[in-house]
Computed example of a mutant assay.
Amino acid sequence: MSMRVFVQIADRGSLSAASAALDISRAMTSRYLESLEEWLGVRLLHRTTRKLSLTDAGEQALQRCRDMVELSDEVKANASQAGEVQGRLRVTSSPSFAEAQLTAAVVEFQRLHPKVAVDLVTTDRTVDLVEDRIDLAVRISNRVDEGLVARRLATCHSLLCASPAYVELAGEPKVPSDLKTHQCIVNSTGFEPTYHLKSGGDVIAVDVRASLTANETSVVRAAVLAGAGIAMLPTYYVADDIATGTLCVILPEFTLEPMGVQAVYLSRRHQPHPLRLLIEFLAERFGGSVAPWDRAHGGLGLGKKLLA
């Protein structure tokens, strides 16, 4: 435990942060650190009122301690595979993907492995996996942060959508340039007010007027349903709306850039057995040449071009 405490202190930069991550008191954290320094016979950290820094001996000891912690975790994970899988996982995703797809998948996974507890954290920001103690992040992105590992689970397609009431009031765009005269709702998290529409081999970039922006897909969808305008929305979230006619597809002959549904985690090495099983489960549930939410509505006109 002393080595694990030392690694957490070095990674997080303070005894208080390490205490919170390990769910122990600050006094206990300090005792573990002191016992490790006493056992090694060296001082591992320079401590001031403002910050901590590694001594030369601490620099040399850190990687060895990190290796020992990882080895310990691997031994425990391998031992647990001999019996029923158990443990706790912290998983994060956007609120919209959790609502539409991930929560049901996690519940099904827990039916298969009832002793695996899951802490599902939904947020519209990109979390730091180390700082927030996240085992798995399910992200809609084509980029992977340096130092992280990603496995593609599915493809996320999006469509331009509007409510029938808005189309009746404002008219339906016939060509991409018509979008410039319409009210548009834009997701402000990582998206620019520009739609890149593809037809054949050509891509047309259209700058639109964002009459409303929101930092979460569920809010964008709610605004579109209320008749506020046109928005780019993922099919994983609005497939049923389109199938029932609650929303209609704008410029259906064009496609938008697809994105990856990625399982993002810290390392392939020393991976806890429950985490490995969950990643495999999600890959099987969401995988295939076409995501299940697009497959389900392929016969209704939604995603015919996605299936092609």
Rank of each mutant, 00 (worst) to 15 (best):
V7P: 07
S19L: 09
S19I: 09
I24G: 04
R26L: 06
M28I: 13
T29P: 12
Y32N: 12
E37Y: 01
W39R: 15
R43N: 05
R43L: 06
H46W: 02
R47G: 14
R50N: 14
R50C: 08
R50A: 05
L52H: 08
L54E: 15
A57S: 10
G58S: 05
G58N: 01
G58A: 01
Q60W: 03
R66A: 11
R66G: 03
D67I: 02
L71D: 15
K76R: 15
A79D: 13
G87E: 05
R88Y: 10
L89K: 11
L89H: 07
R90T: 11
V91S: 00
Q101I: 04
A104G: 13
V106G: 01
V107W: 01
L112Q: 14
P114F: 03
V118Q: 01
L120S: 02
L120W: 01
L129C: 01
V130M: 07
E131V: 00
R133M: 04
R133S: 09
V138C: 02
R139I: 08
V144R: 13
D145H: 01
G147H: 09
L148F: 05
A150T: 09
A154V: 05
C156E: 06
H157L: 02
H157P: 11
L160M: 10
A162W: 08
Y166K: 05
A170L: 00
G171K: 04
E172I: 05
P173V: 01
V175G: 09
K180T: 08
T181V: 01
H182E: 15
N187H: 12
S188H: 03
T189Q: 12
G190I: 00
E192Y: 00
H196M: 13
D207F: 04
V208I: 11
V208N: 00
L212E: 12
N215Q: 10
T217I: 06
S218T: 02
S218H: 11
V224R: 06
L225Q: 11
G229V: 13
I230Q: 04
I230K: 03
V238E: 10
D240K: 13
T244S: 14
T246P: 12
L247T: 07
L256I: 06
E257I: 04
M259P: 14
M259H: 13
V261F: 04
V261H: 01
Q262P: 15
A263D: 09
L266E: 12
L266V: 11
L266D: 15
S267E: 07
S267G: 05
R268I: 00
H270P: 15
Q271V: 11
R276P: 14
R276Y: 10
R276E: 10
L277P: 08
A283R: 13
A283P: 11
E284R: 05
E284W: 02
G287L: 10
G287V: 08
P292D: 03
D294W: 02
R295D: 03
H297F: 10
H297R: 14
G299F: 15
G301T: 06
G301F: 04
K304V: 00
K305V: 04
L307P: 03
